[in-house]
Write a protein that binds this DNA or RNA. Structure first.
Lengths: 183, 183
DNA sequence: CGATAATTGTTGAAGCCTAAAGTATTTTCA
DNA sequence: TGAAAATACTTTAGGCTTCAACAATTATCG
Protein backbone atom coordinates (compact mmCIF):
# COMPACT_ATOMS: atom_id res chain seq x y z
CA UNK A 1 0.00 0.00 0.00
CA UNK A 2 1.57 3.23 -1.06
CA UNK A 3 2.02 6.11 1.24
CA UNK A 4 -0.06 8.50 -0.75
CA UNK A 5 -3.74 8.95 -0.41
CA UNK A 6 -6.10 9.39 -3.26
CA UNK A 7 -5.43 13.10 -3.15
CA UNK A 8 -8.54 14.26 -4.85
CA UNK A 9 -10.23 17.38 -3.74
CA UNK A 10 -13.04 16.14 -1.62
CA UNK A 11 -15.74 18.61 -0.74
CA UNK A 12 -16.46 18.61 2.94
CA UNK A 13 -19.84 17.07 3.33
CA UNK A 14 -19.09 15.34 6.59
CA UNK A 15 -21.53 16.49 9.21
CA UNK A 16 -24.83 18.14 8.69
CA UNK A 17 -24.45 20.11 11.87
CA UNK A 18 -21.96 22.60 10.52
CA UNK A 19 -22.36 24.03 7.08
CA UNK A 20 -19.42 23.67 4.77
CA UNK A 21 -18.48 27.30 5.04
CA UNK A 22 -18.11 27.40 8.79
CA UNK A 23 -16.29 24.13 8.75
CA UNK A 24 -13.90 25.31 6.10
CA UNK A 25 -13.03 28.32 8.20
CA UNK A 26 -12.62 26.47 11.46
CA UNK A 27 -10.78 23.55 10.00
CA UNK A 28 -8.76 24.30 6.93
CA UNK A 29 -8.07 20.58 6.54
CA UNK A 30 -10.54 18.10 5.15
CA UNK A 31 -10.06 14.40 5.71
CA UNK A 32 -6.56 14.43 4.33
CA UNK A 33 -4.70 14.12 7.61
CA UNK A 34 -6.66 11.11 8.78
CA UNK A 35 -6.31 9.51 5.37
CA UNK A 36 -2.58 9.98 5.39
CA UNK A 37 -2.37 8.66 8.93
CA UNK A 38 -4.28 5.54 7.93
CA UNK A 39 -2.03 4.91 4.95
CA UNK A 40 1.07 5.30 7.06
CA UNK A 41 -0.33 2.97 9.70
CA UNK A 42 -1.05 0.43 7.01
CA UNK A 43 2.40 0.84 5.51
CA UNK A 44 4.10 0.18 8.84
CA UNK A 45 2.04 -2.90 9.54
CA UNK A 46 2.50 -4.27 6.03
CA UNK A 47 6.25 -3.78 6.16
CA UNK A 48 6.65 -5.52 9.50
CA UNK A 49 4.19 -8.27 8.71
CA UNK A 50 5.89 -9.08 5.43
CA UNK A 51 9.29 -9.20 7.06
CA UNK A 52 8.12 -11.48 9.85
CA UNK A 53 6.28 -13.71 7.43
CA UNK A 54 9.36 -14.10 5.27
CA UNK A 55 11.61 -14.88 8.20
CA UNK A 56 9.20 -17.37 9.78
CA UNK A 57 8.99 -19.15 6.48
CA UNK A 58 12.73 -19.14 5.89
CA UNK A 59 13.79 -20.13 9.40
CA UNK A 60 10.98 -22.39 10.60
CA UNK A 61 8.93 -23.22 7.52
CA UNK A 62 5.80 -21.95 9.25
CA UNK A 63 3.20 -19.40 8.23
CA UNK A 64 2.32 -16.31 10.24
CA UNK A 65 -1.30 -17.35 10.96
CA UNK A 66 -0.13 -20.69 12.31
CA UNK A 67 2.46 -19.00 14.47
CA UNK A 68 -0.16 -16.59 15.78
CA UNK A 69 -2.55 -19.38 16.61
CA UNK A 70 0.15 -21.25 18.49
CA UNK A 71 1.00 -18.06 20.35
CA UNK A 72 -2.59 -17.79 21.52
CA UNK A 73 -2.64 -21.37 22.71
CA UNK A 74 0.68 -20.99 24.47
CA UNK A 75 -0.92 -18.39 26.71
CA UNK A 76 -3.64 -20.86 27.72
CA UNK A 77 -1.96 -24.17 28.53
CA UNK A 78 -5.23 -25.77 29.59
CA UNK A 79 -6.72 -25.14 26.16
CA UNK A 80 -9.20 -22.87 24.44
CA UNK A 81 -12.30 -23.21 22.28
CA UNK A 82 -12.22 -22.40 18.58
CA UNK A 83 -14.58 -19.51 19.13
CA UNK A 84 -12.23 -18.01 21.68
CA UNK A 85 -9.38 -18.33 19.21
CA UNK A 86 -11.49 -16.71 16.54
CA UNK A 87 -12.30 -13.71 18.75
CA UNK A 88 -8.77 -13.25 20.00
CA UNK A 89 -7.22 -13.50 16.57
CA UNK A 90 -9.95 -11.36 15.05
CA UNK A 91 -10.57 -13.72 12.16
CA UNK A 92 -13.60 -15.68 11.07
CA UNK A 93 -14.71 -18.97 12.54
CA UNK A 94 -14.21 -20.86 9.32
CA UNK A 95 -10.68 -19.63 9.15
CA UNK A 96 -9.86 -21.12 12.54
CA UNK A 97 -11.36 -24.44 11.54
CA UNK A 98 -8.89 -24.73 8.68
CA UNK A 99 -5.86 -23.59 10.65
CA UNK A 100 -6.60 -25.99 13.50
CA UNK A 101 -7.01 -28.80 11.00
CA UNK A 102 -3.54 -28.20 9.56
CA UNK A 103 -1.80 -27.79 12.91
CA UNK A 104 -3.47 -30.94 14.18
CA UNK A 105 -2.20 -32.85 11.15
CA UNK A 106 1.29 -31.65 11.96
CA UNK A 107 0.88 -32.93 15.51
CA UNK A 108 1.35 -29.48 17.01
CA UNK A 109 -2.03 -29.30 18.71
CA UNK A 110 -4.75 -31.69 19.78
CA UNK A 111 -8.48 -31.45 20.17
CA UNK A 112 -9.95 -32.28 23.54
CA UNK A 113 -13.64 -32.59 24.38
CA UNK A 114 -15.25 -29.62 26.06
CA UNK A 115 -16.23 -30.61 29.59
CA UNK A 116 -19.77 -29.22 29.50
CA UNK A 117 -20.66 -28.05 25.99
CA UNK A 118 -20.90 -30.65 23.28
CA UNK A 119 -21.03 -28.03 20.55
CA UNK A 120 -17.67 -26.58 21.45
CA UNK A 121 -14.29 -27.96 20.46
CA UNK A 122 -11.30 -27.25 22.63
CA UNK A 123 -7.72 -27.39 21.46
CA UNK A 124 -4.35 -27.14 23.14
CA UNK A 125 -0.73 -27.42 22.13
CA UNK A 126 0.88 -30.83 22.25
CA UNK A 127 4.29 -31.30 23.81
CA UNK A 128 5.78 -30.99 20.34
CA UNK A 129 3.74 -27.83 19.81
CA UNK A 130 5.07 -26.24 22.97
CA UNK A 131 8.63 -27.06 22.04
CA UNK A 132 8.22 -25.85 18.49
CA UNK A 133 6.66 -22.59 19.60
CA UNK A 134 9.27 -21.96 22.25
CA UNK A 135 12.00 -22.12 19.61
CA UNK A 136 10.22 -19.76 17.30
CA UNK A 137 9.13 -17.31 19.96
CA UNK A 138 12.68 -16.49 20.99
CA UNK A 139 13.72 -15.59 17.47
CA UNK A 140 10.47 -13.82 16.78
CA UNK A 141 10.83 -11.55 19.77
CA UNK A 142 14.32 -10.63 18.69
CA UNK A 143 13.17 -9.83 15.18
CA UNK A 144 10.44 -7.53 16.43
CA UNK A 145 12.79 -5.86 18.86
CA UNK A 146 15.23 -5.32 16.05
CA UNK A 147 12.66 -3.84 13.72
CA UNK A 148 11.76 -1.28 16.39
CA UNK A 149 15.34 -0.74 17.46
CA UNK A 150 15.43 2.73 15.93
CA UNK A 151 12.91 3.99 18.49
CA UNK A 152 13.74 5.04 22.01
CA UNK A 153 11.93 3.83 25.08
CA UNK A 154 9.94 7.03 25.32
CA UNK A 155 8.85 6.79 21.72
CA UNK A 156 7.70 3.22 22.21
CA UNK A 157 5.68 4.24 25.25
CA UNK A 158 4.16 7.18 23.43
CA UNK A 159 3.20 5.04 20.46
CA UNK A 160 1.63 2.52 22.80
CA UNK A 161 -0.49 5.24 24.32
CA UNK A 162 -1.54 6.82 21.03
CA UNK A 163 -2.40 3.48 19.46
CA UNK A 164 -4.50 2.79 22.53
CA UNK A 165 -6.37 5.96 21.70
CA UNK A 166 -6.81 4.79 18.12
CA UNK A 167 -8.26 1.52 19.34
CA UNK A 168 -10.71 3.42 21.53
CA UNK A 169 -11.70 5.68 18.69
CA UNK A 170 -12.25 2.85 16.24
CA UNK A 171 -14.25 0.86 18.73
CA UNK A 172 -16.43 3.86 19.45
CA UNK A 173 -17.05 4.50 15.77
CA UNK A 174 -17.81 0.90 14.87
CA UNK A 175 -20.03 0.30 17.86
CA UNK A 176 -21.99 3.35 16.90
CA UNK A 177 -22.41 2.04 13.38
CA UNK A 178 -23.45 -1.39 14.58
CA UNK A 179 -26.09 0.09 16.85
CA UNK A 180 -27.36 2.29 14.03
CA UNK A 181 -27.54 -0.76 11.76
CA UNK A 182 -29.65 -2.58 14.36
CA UNK A 183 -27.25 -4.71 16.34
CA UNK B 1 27.08 -10.20 21.07
CA UNK B 2 28.55 -9.31 24.44
CA UNK B 3 27.49 -6.79 27.02
CA UNK B 4 30.31 -4.46 26.18
CA UNK B 5 30.51 -4.07 22.45
CA UNK B 6 33.84 -2.51 21.49
CA UNK B 7 32.40 -0.29 18.76
CA UNK B 8 30.30 1.45 21.34
CA UNK B 9 32.89 4.23 21.64
CA UNK B 10 31.57 6.35 18.84
CA UNK B 11 28.27 7.89 19.79
CA UNK B 12 25.40 8.30 17.35
CA UNK B 13 27.44 9.86 14.59
CA UNK B 14 27.17 6.63 12.58
CA UNK B 15 24.60 5.40 10.13
CA UNK B 16 21.06 4.61 11.06
CA UNK B 17 21.78 0.91 10.70
CA UNK B 18 24.69 0.84 13.09
CA UNK B 19 22.85 2.96 15.57
CA UNK B 20 19.89 0.62 15.64
CA UNK B 21 22.09 -2.42 15.89
CA UNK B 22 24.13 -1.26 18.81
CA UNK B 23 21.10 -0.06 20.62
CA UNK B 24 19.46 -3.47 20.34
CA UNK B 25 22.59 -5.26 21.42
CA UNK B 26 23.60 -3.15 24.32
CA UNK B 27 20.25 -3.23 26.09
CA UNK B 28 19.58 -6.44 27.98
CA UNK B 29 15.96 -5.71 27.31
CA UNK B 30 13.44 -8.52 27.33
CA UNK B 31 11.74 -7.33 24.12
CA UNK B 32 8.38 -7.23 25.86
CA UNK B 33 7.61 -3.59 25.14
CA UNK B 34 8.33 -3.90 21.45
CA UNK B 35 6.31 -7.08 21.24
CA UNK B 36 3.33 -5.42 22.87
CA UNK B 37 3.71 -2.41 20.61
CA UNK B 38 3.71 -4.64 17.55
CA UNK B 39 0.59 -6.47 18.68
CA UNK B 40 -1.22 -3.22 19.31
CA UNK B 41 -0.17 -1.84 15.94
CA UNK B 42 -1.46 -4.99 14.29
CA UNK B 43 -4.72 -4.81 16.21
CA UNK B 44 -5.38 -1.23 15.12
CA UNK B 45 -4.67 -2.01 11.48
CA UNK B 46 -6.75 -5.18 11.52
CA UNK B 47 -9.71 -3.40 13.09
CA UNK B 48 -9.70 -0.56 10.60
CA UNK B 49 -8.98 -2.75 7.61
CA UNK B 50 -11.81 -5.11 8.47
CA UNK B 51 -14.24 -2.26 8.91
CA UNK B 52 -13.29 -0.65 5.62
CA UNK B 53 -13.42 -3.96 3.80
CA UNK B 54 -16.90 -4.67 5.10
CA UNK B 55 -18.20 -1.24 4.20
CA UNK B 56 -16.68 -1.27 0.71
CA UNK B 57 -18.27 -4.61 0.10
CA UNK B 58 -21.66 -3.59 1.48
CA UNK B 59 -21.86 -0.17 -0.18
CA UNK B 60 -20.02 -0.65 -3.45
CA UNK B 61 -19.59 -4.39 -3.86
CA UNK B 62 -15.86 -3.94 -4.27
CA UNK B 63 -12.90 -5.49 -2.50
CA UNK B 64 -10.23 -3.53 -0.68
CA UNK B 65 -7.37 -4.57 -2.98
CA UNK B 66 -9.32 -3.45 -6.04
CA UNK B 67 -10.12 -0.14 -4.39
CA UNK B 68 -6.47 0.33 -3.50
CA UNK B 69 -5.35 -0.42 -7.01
CA UNK B 70 -7.81 2.07 -8.44
CA UNK B 71 -6.60 4.65 -5.91
CA UNK B 72 -3.07 4.21 -7.20
CA UNK B 73 -4.15 4.63 -10.80
CA UNK B 74 -6.24 7.67 -9.98
CA UNK B 75 -3.06 9.45 -8.95
CA UNK B 76 -1.46 8.74 -12.32
CA UNK B 77 -4.01 9.60 -14.98
CA UNK B 78 -1.54 8.88 -17.78
CA UNK B 79 -1.12 5.30 -16.57
CA UNK B 80 1.39 3.13 -14.77
CA UNK B 81 3.20 -0.15 -15.35
CA UNK B 82 2.27 -3.26 -13.42
CA UNK B 83 5.65 -3.27 -11.74
CA UNK B 84 5.10 0.23 -10.50
CA UNK B 85 1.74 -0.80 -9.09
CA UNK B 86 3.36 -3.78 -7.43
CA UNK B 87 5.99 -1.64 -5.73
CA UNK B 88 3.59 1.05 -4.62
CA UNK B 89 1.07 -1.39 -3.23
CA UNK B 90 3.82 -3.52 -1.70
CA UNK B 91 2.44 -6.77 -3.07
CA UNK B 92 3.85 -9.37 -5.44
CA UNK B 93 3.87 -9.09 -9.20
CA UNK B 94 1.62 -12.07 -9.68
CA UNK B 95 -0.91 -10.51 -7.40
CA UNK B 96 -1.15 -7.42 -9.57
CA UNK B 97 -1.60 -9.51 -12.68
CA UNK B 98 -4.75 -11.05 -11.22
CA UNK B 99 -6.21 -7.82 -9.89
CA UNK B 100 -5.66 -6.03 -13.18
CA UNK B 101 -7.31 -8.92 -15.00
CA UNK B 102 -10.45 -8.63 -12.92
CA UNK B 103 -10.68 -4.85 -13.08
CA UNK B 104 -10.18 -4.97 -16.84
CA UNK B 105 -13.03 -7.47 -17.16
CA UNK B 106 -15.22 -5.05 -15.24
CA UNK B 107 -14.26 -2.29 -17.65
CA UNK B 108 -12.74 -0.16 -14.93
CA UNK B 109 -9.25 -0.04 -16.38
CA UNK B 110 -7.57 -0.66 -19.71
CA UNK B 111 -4.19 -1.82 -20.81
CA UNK B 112 -2.18 0.38 -23.08
CA UNK B 113 1.12 -0.46 -24.78
CA UNK B 114 4.26 0.89 -23.19
CA UNK B 115 5.85 3.42 -25.53
CA UNK B 116 9.42 2.11 -25.35
CA UNK B 117 9.52 -1.19 -23.43
CA UNK B 118 7.81 -4.14 -25.00
CA UNK B 119 8.10 -6.18 -21.81
CA UNK B 120 6.11 -3.73 -19.76
CA UNK B 121 2.34 -3.40 -19.63
CA UNK B 122 0.77 -0.11 -18.75
CA UNK B 123 -2.72 0.33 -17.37
CA UNK B 124 -4.95 3.29 -16.62
CA UNK B 125 -8.45 3.86 -15.40
CA UNK B 126 -11.22 4.07 -17.95
CA UNK B 127 -13.80 6.81 -17.78
CA UNK B 128 -16.08 4.41 -15.91
CA UNK B 129 -13.20 3.60 -13.58
CA UNK B 130 -12.65 7.25 -12.76
CA UNK B 131 -16.32 7.79 -12.05
CA UNK B 132 -16.61 4.65 -9.96
CA UNK B 133 -13.56 5.54 -7.91
CA UNK B 134 -14.68 9.11 -7.36
CA UNK B 135 -17.90 7.87 -5.79
CA UNK B 136 -16.15 5.46 -3.50
CA UNK B 137 -13.36 7.81 -2.52
CA UNK B 138 -15.71 10.34 -1.00
CA UNK B 139 -17.34 7.79 1.26
CA UNK B 140 -14.05 6.12 2.05
CA UNK B 141 -12.47 9.35 3.22
CA UNK B 142 -15.42 9.98 5.50
CA UNK B 143 -15.23 6.51 6.97
CA UNK B 144 -11.57 6.89 7.77
CA UNK B 145 -12.06 10.32 9.23
CA UNK B 146 -14.84 8.93 11.38
CA UNK B 147 -12.79 6.03 12.64
CA UNK B 148 -10.12 8.48 13.80
CA UNK B 149 -12.60 11.02 15.09
CA UNK B 150 -11.71 10.28 18.71
CA UNK B 151 -8.24 11.73 18.22
CA UNK B 152 -7.37 15.38 18.31
CA UNK B 153 -5.33 17.17 15.69
CA UNK B 154 -2.24 17.09 17.86
CA UNK B 155 -2.56 13.37 18.42
CA UNK B 156 -2.92 12.73 14.71
CA UNK B 157 0.20 14.77 14.03
CA UNK B 158 2.13 13.01 16.76
CA UNK B 159 1.11 9.59 15.48
CA UNK B 160 2.15 10.61 11.98
CA UNK B 161 5.57 11.54 13.27
CA UNK B 162 6.07 8.43 15.37
CA UNK B 163 4.92 6.10 12.61
CA UNK B 164 7.37 7.84 10.35
CA UNK B 165 10.05 6.88 12.85
CA UNK B 166 8.78 3.30 12.80
CA UNK B 167 9.05 3.24 9.02
CA UNK B 168 12.60 4.49 9.24
CA UNK B 169 13.50 1.92 11.83
CA UNK B 170 12.00 -0.96 9.91
CA UNK B 171 13.64 0.08 6.69
CA UNK B 172 16.99 0.33 8.40
CA UNK B 173 16.63 -3.11 9.96
CA UNK B 174 15.46 -4.84 6.81
CA UNK B 175 18.01 -3.20 4.56
CA UNK B 176 20.67 -4.37 6.94
CA UNK B 177 19.36 -7.92 6.76
CA UNK B 178 19.13 -7.86 2.98
CA UNK B 179 22.71 -6.71 2.70
CA UNK B 180 23.85 -9.42 5.10
CA UNK B 181 21.95 -12.01 3.07
CA UNK B 182 23.71 -10.88 -0.10
CA UNK B 183 21.14 -8.61 -1.69
C1' DC C 1 28.74 -7.61 -31.85
C1' DG C 2 27.21 -11.12 -28.78
C1' DA C 3 26.98 -13.65 -24.44
C1' DT C 4 25.44 -12.91 -19.96
C1' DA C 5 22.65 -10.67 -16.64
C1' DA C 6 18.77 -8.15 -15.19
C1' DT C 7 14.00 -6.79 -15.62
C1' DT C 8 8.91 -7.37 -16.71
C1' DG C 9 5.07 -9.83 -16.53
C1' DT C 10 2.54 -14.47 -16.36
C1' DT C 11 1.37 -18.94 -14.52
C1' DG C 12 0.47 -22.63 -11.10
C1' DA C 13 0.46 -24.58 -6.55
C1' DA C 14 -0.37 -23.86 -1.89
C1' DG C 15 -2.37 -21.44 1.59
C1' DC C 16 -5.11 -17.62 3.87
C1' DC C 17 -9.52 -15.25 4.45
C1' DT C 18 -14.40 -13.96 4.42
C1' DA C 19 -19.31 -14.30 3.96
C1' DA C 20 -23.14 -17.09 3.85
C1' DA C 21 -25.55 -21.17 4.49
C1' DG C 22 -25.96 -25.37 7.09
C1' DT C 23 -25.83 -28.74 11.33
C1' DA C 24 -25.78 -29.73 16.08
C1' DT C 25 -26.36 -28.27 20.58
C1' DT C 26 -27.66 -25.22 24.30
C1' DT C 27 -30.33 -21.37 26.23
C1' DT C 28 -34.33 -18.62 26.76
C1' DC C 29 -38.82 -17.88 28.11
C1' DA C 30 -43.90 -18.13 27.37
C1' DT D 1 -42.21 -28.35 29.05
C1' DG D 2 -41.26 -27.17 24.48
C1' DA D 3 -40.89 -23.93 20.60
C1' DA D 4 -37.90 -20.28 19.23
C1' DA D 5 -33.59 -18.03 19.52
C1' DA D 6 -28.85 -18.09 20.26
C1' DT D 7 -24.38 -20.24 20.02
C1' DA D 8 -20.39 -23.28 18.26
C1' DC D 9 -18.54 -25.07 14.62
C1' DT D 10 -18.19 -26.75 9.61
C1' DT D 11 -18.61 -26.31 4.77
C1' DT D 12 -18.46 -24.04 0.39
C1' DA D 13 -17.64 -20.56 -3.06
C1' DG D 14 -15.07 -16.74 -4.32
C1' DG D 15 -11.26 -13.92 -3.84
C1' DC D 16 -6.52 -12.50 -2.21
C1' DT D 17 -1.56 -13.53 -1.65
C1' DT D 18 2.97 -15.41 -1.93
C1' DC D 19 6.63 -18.05 -3.90
C1' DA D 20 8.94 -20.21 -7.44
C1' DA D 21 9.49 -21.28 -12.05
C1' DC D 22 9.07 -19.49 -16.55
C1' DA D 23 9.09 -16.62 -21.08
C1' DA D 24 10.03 -12.43 -23.34
C1' DT D 25 12.54 -8.44 -23.65
C1' DT D 26 16.05 -5.14 -22.54
C1' DA D 27 20.53 -3.78 -20.51
C1' DT D 28 25.43 -4.57 -19.62
C1' DC D 29 29.98 -5.04 -20.85
C1' DG D 30 34.02 -7.75 -22.55
Amino acid sequence: MGENAPDREIPGRETMVLDAETRAQERPHDHQDELRLWLRLLTCTTLIEGEIRTRLRACFDVTLPRFDLMAQLEKMPEGMTLGELSRRMMVSNGNITGLVEKLAELGLLQRIPHPTDRRAAMVRLTEAGHRSFADMAVEHAEWISNLFAGLGEAEVAQLMRLLGRVKQSVHAATEERKVRAGE
